[in-house]
């Protein structure tokens, strides 16, 4: 049986087949995130203004399988950009998806690009 977790597979920049035009840059708070819908997926997108970078990952927290990561606070753990789940504060690297403060499986991360004021997230399908 396919679980909801199986929907989310980390995507490398080199494998991107679709650049999905998600929303305007203005729709995302500075140094914060919001959620976008792509097909049946929920993707958290973060505007890491302090680093002048954008990140995207699954909105699903692998701890208790809730769609909440986009509502988490972002920051860094010894230099690694991270997001903290709002429910129990598990933290995940925004670069690799790795869980930084316990031994949960990594979350899927996706490439992001910004063109002409719009945010695009890369998927392989």
């Amino acid at each position: 049986m396919e679980t909801i977790l199986d929907k989310y597979k980390a995507t490398e920049l080199t494998n991107v087949k679709v650049w999905f035009k998600a929303a305007s840059v203005k729709d995302f708070p500075k140094d914060g995130g919001a959620c976008i819908k792509y097909k049946d997926k929920q993707i958290a997108v973060f505007n890491f203004t302090r680093l002048n970078k954008w990140y995207a990952c699954q909105n699903l927290c692998p701890h208790k399988m809730e769609m909440v990561l986009s509502r988490g606070m972002i920051g860094d753990d010894k230099g690694i950009p991270k997001v903290a789940c709002p429910l129990h504060k598990k933290t995940f690297s925004l670069e690799t998806g790795e869980n930084l403060n316990s031994d949960l499986n990594a979350i899927a991360v996706y490439p992001v690009k910004v063109e002409e004021g719009y945010v695009y997230v890369g998927f392989d399908e």
């Binding site: 729709d27 919001a34 819908k37 929920q42 769609m67």
Partner: peptide, 16 residues
Amino acid sequence: MKRFNHFVNSEDEDDN
């Protein structure tokens, strides 16, 4: 008020 949308690109609610 915009803050209170589950998706920024859709009016849908959390389907999970």
